[in-house]
């Protein structure tokens, strides 16, 4: 996060590249190719012990920073998470008093599922010095975080755990379990997973037998989710065929207005239609042609935070999509 080149951590708003890194299918693809599907639980536990032992072995770097002495297997008491998707999981799984800080995006009502719960939590902007000052006993992040902050934190002897981001719905339970193991919240994880599975099954049952409809996810700048995306999979769960399926677009890509009109989807799920709309990217979603062509009645503003991150909220996303049928 700290390696974001445009200094966006210092601004008071979510940052484009940060978002792109969190959610772009490219990164997810990378994550997937690196992922070892066998026994993520064991691996995570191993990684945890490994990190903690290396942390314990490390000589205290400057005298001001005390060496971490964490007994393995006791749940961490001061957790810091580095990115939005892990913020959301930490908020769901951990006791509030054990969360030292979440990333700033967690406070954003547009992108964060638990933004209300996060308001009372401390937030950090991804800079190592802020995180060090919090004296965390566990730092969790996504595995694409190779930024300077992670390196510095590791050098200083802080235990940093990174997790591969799930690219599919099927990978979400394993991801939740892996994070929960690190947080010492395995019982809570099973509840969350059971609820997720129930919601997904309910959504599928609700649309069973209904004819497939053609759906389009349409984000600012005219982006539509690719076939490899979680959004596409969720739309399938809700009984939709997507424009990306039809065009064979694997990754998120722009769909020109002209093409949208020609393809004539049955439903359009507009993203980020709440909050600040003052940009050219947002203005595209209000292009007068969409109204003239009669798409207003077929468009729904879909809360982006429900399908931005692979997590328990996928259940709510599936339910909402299925209810829109």
């Amino acid at each position: 996060m700290s390696s974001a080149p445009n200094g966006c951590e210092r601004t008071q708003r979510p940052c484009g590249s940060e978002l792109a890194r969190d959610f772009s299918p490219f990164y997810r693809e990378q994550a997937r190719s690196r992922k070892n599907n066998s026994m993520p639980l064991v691996l995570a536990a191993f990684a945890l012990t490994f990190c903690m032992t290396t942390a314990a072995q490390q000589t205290p770097f400057p005298a001001a920073i005390p060496a971490k002495e964490i007994a393995p297997r006791t749940p961490p008491k001061r957790v810091v998470s580095l990115s939005l998707c892990l913020d959301e999981l930490v908020i769901v799984l951990s006791d509030r008093q054990h969360i030292a800080a979440v990333s700033r995006l967690a406070h954003d009502p547009l992108y964060s599922v638990h933004w209300q719960a996060a308001q009372t939590l401390r937030s950090h902007n991804g800079l190592a010095e802020q995180i060090v000052a919090l004296q965390p006993d566990l730092i969790v992040g996504a595995d694409y975080e190779h930024g300077k902050a992670v390196q510095v934190l590791r050098t200083l002897g802080f235990p940093v755990l990174t997790f591969a981001s799930p690219a599919t719905l099927a990978e979400i339970p394993g991801h939740i379990r892996a994070v929960a193991t690190a947080l010492g919240a395995t019982a809570k994880a099973e509840q969350v997973i059971a609820k997720l599975n129930k919601e997904l099954a309910a959504a599928q049952a609700k649309v069973a037998g209904k004819p497939a409809q053609l759906a389009l996810s349409y984000a600012p700048n005219g982006y539509t989710a690719g076939t490899l995306s979680l959004k596409n999979e969720l739309l399938h769960v809700a009984g939709f065929v997507t424009v990306a399926d039809r065009l064979g677009r694997r990754y998120d890509s722009e769909l020109a207005l002209e093409q949208l009109l020609k393809i004539n989807p049955d439903r359009i799920f507009l993203e980020e239609r709440s909050g600040n709309q003052n940009s050219l990217a947002h203005r595209l979603l209000q292009h007068p042609t969409l109204r003239s062509a009669g798409f207003d009645a077929r468009s729904t503003a879909f809360p982006s935070q429900l399908w931005l991150c692979p997590g328990p909220q996928a259940g709510a996303a599936a339910r909402m999509l299925a209810e829109s049928r």
């Binding site: 601004t11 708003r13 940009s279 292009h287």
Partner: peptide, 27 residues
């Protein structure tokens, strides 16, 4: 653009510096 309260503002600098006629409306 950096302090604009919209996450897309910064990436739209290219538009303002180089110009484009794409997706303009009649109004």
């Amino acid at each position: 653009l950096n302090f604009a309260p919209n996450p897309y503002a910064m990436s739209e600098m290219v538009y303002w510096l180089l110009g484009s006629f794409a997706n303009r409306t009649l109004s």
